[in-house]
Computed example of a mutant assay.
Amino acid sequence: MTITQLQYVLAVAEYKNFTLAAEKSFVTQPTLSMQIQKIEEELGVLIFDRSKKPIQLTPVGQQIVEQAKNIVLESGRIKDIVDQQKGFIGGDFKIGIIPTIMPTLLPMFLNNFVKKYPKINLIIEELNTQAIIEKLKSGHLDAAIAATPLDEERLKEFVLYYEPFVAYIPEQNKLSRKSLIKPEDLEINEILLLRDGHCFRDGIINLCNTISTDKKANFQIESGSFETMIKLADEGLGITLLPYLHTLDLSERNRAKLRHFEEPKPARQVSLIFGQTALKMHIIEALRQVISGVVRGAIAFQNVEIISPLPNKK
């Protein structure tokens, strides 16, 4: 069997369709089918149950796919070793970033990084945390930036910085009279939240999980935009919480509506995440150094309390 054959097996296992797997593998469908048939004949087993729609793995096929993932990932380490020996820092590098970090962090470090490492082709994708975890484990991402800890055994985390939560409170709200606020001051049903699937939303819920929820709001909204939350707050529909870096781009008028928390400030931990058997560690380290360098001046908070980004966690 060959590495290429194993890659074809992994493609069919992922897409559950020979035609789509061939398209994603940049080969014809007959070529991909023939190569998978060869490996099945060599092993004397069926990897896929072709009678099912969509195609399913056989019980032994599931075990073969898990081992194939390890083999394909480890085979990539050979080129990685050679690149590091030659001092070459380049090639494609796929990175995922969660939506509540992408708009603020990416402009801070991207220009510096591409100038310092012009031979690296960064392929950046905005993904939610669950999609990042799945793609890291399957080898479809080299690294990611997200709120942590994630409690995933197969993933490693390099902490980049701690980013406090900041409250955006319009003048008509009673909390606007306070110079500093505490989590106990918040009412969860008064807080405008991002839609489900955002770990920043889960962090806010975890921050407020001891607060009474007897009062019910008379509207529901699902939005992935902090800007929408700010405009709704200005209309008197509640307050919202923002990550600190997002507050740096607000107008002077809107910054006057910000209220920081008393210390220890509730904050999210932002980390560079990668698989335990990660390839391209020299690129991961280069990325870590560049990001740490640019955020050091913007994020200077030390006395913080880390709020979990996981649902239903304190």
Rank of each mutant, 00 (worst) to 15 (best):
S176C: 10
I169N: 04
I239E: 02
H140P: 00
K215T: 14
I181Q: 10
L186M: 13
K216D: 09
T228Y: 04
T148M: 06
K174D: 13
F200K: 01
E190S: 15
I239T: 09
R201Q: 10
R201H: 10
S225P: 04
T213M: 12
E163F: 00
E163H: 03
P243Q: 09
G238H: 04
S179K: 15
T228E: 13
E163W: 00
D214Y: 14
G203W: 04
M229I: 06
S251T: 15
L141E: 03
A131I: 03
L241M: 10
E222S: 15
L245D: 00
R201E: 05
G236W: 04
P164D: 08
G238V: 03
L232M: 15
G236A: 08
F165S: 01
A147P: 00
I204K: 00
D202Q: 13
L232N: 02
E152G: 02
L160P: 00
D151H: 11
L136P: 01
H140S: 13
N206D: 07
F200T: 02
N218L: 11
G224T: 07
H140A: 13
F165K: 03
L250W: 05
L193D: 03
Q220A: 12
L237R: 12
L207N: 07
F200R: 01
L241C: 06
L207Y: 07
Y244S: 03
R177P: 00
Q130P: 00
I132Q: 02
K174Y: 13
Y162F: 14
